[in-house]
Design a protein around this nucleic acid. Structure first.
Length: 596
RNA sequence: CGGGGCGUAGCUCAGCCCGGUAGAGCACUGCGUUUGGGACGCAGAAGUCGUCGGUUCAAAUCCGGCCGCCCCGACCA
């Protein structure tokens, strides 16, 4: 492609709406343009890169037995009503009606369609297992799209769906994806970390997310390098070590003027925060058939609530922090709320599993400026539910070996879910087994965001001068730059360009009549990994200059050998990337605790 | 949905506080010079100042509603 005829300009300054390095560089380099919040146009450069990512996904899916198909973006509401998600998912679902008033859904994902296809295509155990996949647009009306391309509302996802006759088959397809996703990351030039995750709206039990670790990520993860434990913070476990105590002290009411926070109280009483307890209040939504209920959660003072685990513990559909007047309405004093004086009929009392093991806690006395010391579970108070509702924290002992966890940030590039029979049961996707019995199909679903993958690659592979994409993702392998107006240079560059095209080299040719500085700056910005320069100077030295983007260490290749030399350079880049495949984590090599 | 910020030329922004002639840099067009790391000169084109309403002799500027975009939070595969 000639840059003189190219569609998609570079920008000297990033548009003001972009913030992360990837969004800024992708915008400046002419890859993407924002149309509206969370809606992007992909210009030719990005489109080429996205197609390359898709091809890698295709190859890896085919390698584990996948068959590519294509399912619609617009679905009739009925299938989502059958699965129940029409009712479970709120405003995130794009809904509209056709001219007849029929309810339609913009695909958030495609489990319902796959389950529907199962009904028409799968009858016998002889037809299983199956693995189908497609690259298709999804629409999710996020509360807030953010981070440029990281969280958009419309995006293309590679989603695959495994169909098996039993759990064992599902497990083996799940493992195949687990390993394939690591290979995909390696081929994209990304280190992906598999973490345990919450299945969320997808349903099912076991799920992993494949994370690209970066401080700009929006997910928090708990990882331990020593033991290999890795989990989304939402579902992270950790060992809880009670403060030792030989005896139970008597419950004592003490005056604590102005000591309304845990830090102040601990200091005032001369104890560690680990010897305090605190109460956190939420309003729980239990669905239309049940009234909302106040939830009083108690945890040790040095810890925070894991809202997801609390929500599961109380079986609520949603939680929100309680307002001060909702807390006072049940007779509690915010800042000094007490485990001991709470009326069990007015709130659901939930205690973290560490609380019953913790002796002599300092807690609120339910009156401003007063606390209790020597509070003990069982003697002074009890809870309706005891569950692990504390959030893992940096330095917490990991659940495997007690080694310290680190809390890091990441971007979810892909995810894998063992759905089991959650969709087969609700939608009637069944097969007949050897004995003639009709049984539900075991499903798994596996996604990778194609655009998000590109954003992560851009985030990882860029510098002050622009993108520096791995050869597997770069829209072109080499940029051919001609400098100056001399006829010799022009002829040599034109000839080389046609030779490269004829040899199948993916070349972007900067034939514009602009200054060298502009050409080099644009070449750096666009992130093409290899650069070939033709100029009077290079011809004087015997040919063309060739090397890595921004490298000062350039080879001079005679014109006659230029195509060959460039092809070798491309091969070398691919070979280097290939090395990433050598020591990948696999399912078999992961610790048991990070698997289930 | 709560908190904060922003909306002026294709892009980045100034002007707004203190009301009165709409600006700069980059980009664009023409001519000339220049050609190894975002050149230079001259000339030119380009803006319903997000939108609707209010105040005023007069509104980009003050006031209000709405819309859009960004950030933090809530939520989320």
């Amino acid at each position: 492609m000639r840059l003189s005829k190219f569609f998609g300009e570079t920008l000297r300054e990033a548009p003001s709406e972009s913030d992360s390095a990837s969004s800024q560089m992708l915008a400046r380099a002419g890859y993407v343009r924002q149309l509206a919040a969370g809606l992007y146009s992909y210009l030719p450069l990005a489109h080429r890169s996205l197609r390359k990512i898709e091809q890698i996904l295709r190859e890896e899916m085919d390698a584990i037995g996948g068959q590519e198909l294509c399912m619609p973006v617009v679905h009739p509401a009925e299938i989502w009503q059958e699965s129940g998600r029409w009712y479970d998912i709120g405003d995130e679902m794009g809904r509209f009606q056709d001219r007849k008033g029929r309810d339609l859904v913009l695909a958030l994902t495609h489990e319902e369609v796959v389950a529907t296809l199962c009904k028409s295509e799968i009858r016998s155990y002889r037809q299983l297992p199956q693995l189908v996949y497609h690259m298709q647009t999804k629409f999710r009306d996020e509360l807030r799209a953010r981070g440029g391309l990281i969280r958009v509302r419309e995006f293309v996802m590679k989603d695959s769906y495994s169909l098996d006759k039993d759990m064992e088959g599902l497990q083996s397809q799940y493992v195949a994806h687990y390993d394939a996703y690591h290979r995909i990351g390696a081929r994209l030039g990304l280190d992906l970390v598999a973490v345990k995750s919450d299945p969320g709206m997808m349903g099912g039990k076991t799920a992993h997310e494949f994370m690209y670790l970066t401080p700009v990520g929006e997910d928090s993860l708990a990882v331990c390098e020593e033991t290999g434990y890795a989990s989304n913070l939402d579902v992270a476990m950790f060992q809880k070590i009670p403060e030792s105590s030989d005896s139970q002290e008597p419950l004592t009411r003490i005056h604590t003027p102005g000591q309304s926070t845990i830090a102040k109280v601990a200091k005032f009483c001369g104890v560690s925060k680990r010897q305090t307890g605190k109460m956190v209040f939420f309003m729980g939504d239990f669905g239309l058939e049940h009234p909302p209920r106040l939830i009083a959660a108690c945890i040790r003072g040095d810890m925070e609530i894991n809202e997801l685990q609390l929500r599961y513990a109380v079986k609520a559909q949603a939680l929100r922090p309680a307002e001060a007047d909702e807390i006072t309405a049940i007779g509690c004093v915010p800042g000094y709320a007490s485990f001991c004086d709470i009326d069990p009929s007015k709130a659901l009392l939930v205690a973290d599993d560490l609380i019953p093991q913790s002796a002599n806690l300092v807690v609120g006395a339910n009156e401003k400026d007063w606390h209790y010391t020597g509070t003990n579970y069982g003697r002074d108070f009890t809870a309706d539910i005891i569950a692990p509702i504390a959030l893992a924290y940096d330095g917490a002992p990991d659940p495997i070996d007690g080694k310290p966890l680190r809390i890091v940030r990441g971007i979810e590039v892909g995810n894998i879910f063992q759905l089991g029979t959650r969709y087969s049961d609700t939608m009637g996707a069944t097969y007949t087994d050897e004995t003639g019995e009709e049984l539900p199909i075991f499903m798994g679903s596996y996604g990778i965001g194609v655009g998000r993958a590109l954003a992560c690659v851009a985030e990882e592979h860029s510098d002050d001068y622009g993108l520096d994409l791995p050869i597997s993702v770069a829209p072109y392998h080499v940029i051919l730059v001609s400098l100056g107006r001399s006829g010799d240079v022009h002829d040599a560059a034109e000839n080389l360009y046609f030779e490269l095209l004829n040899s199948g080299v993916e070349v972007l040719y900067d034939d514009r009549p602009v200054s060298p500085g502009v050409k080099f700056a644009d070449a750096d910005l666009r992130g093409i990994p290899l650069r070939c320069t033709v100029s009077s100077r290079s011809l004087g030295r015997g040919g063309v200059e060739f090397g890595r983007r921004r490298s000062k260490d350039l080879d001079i290749i005679p014109l006659d050998d230029a195509v060959k030399g460039i092809q070798e350079g491309i091969t070398q880049c691919f070979r280097k990337l290939q090395q990433r495949l050598e020591h990948l984590p696999t399912w078999a090599s992961r610790s048991k605790d990070s698997q289930s």
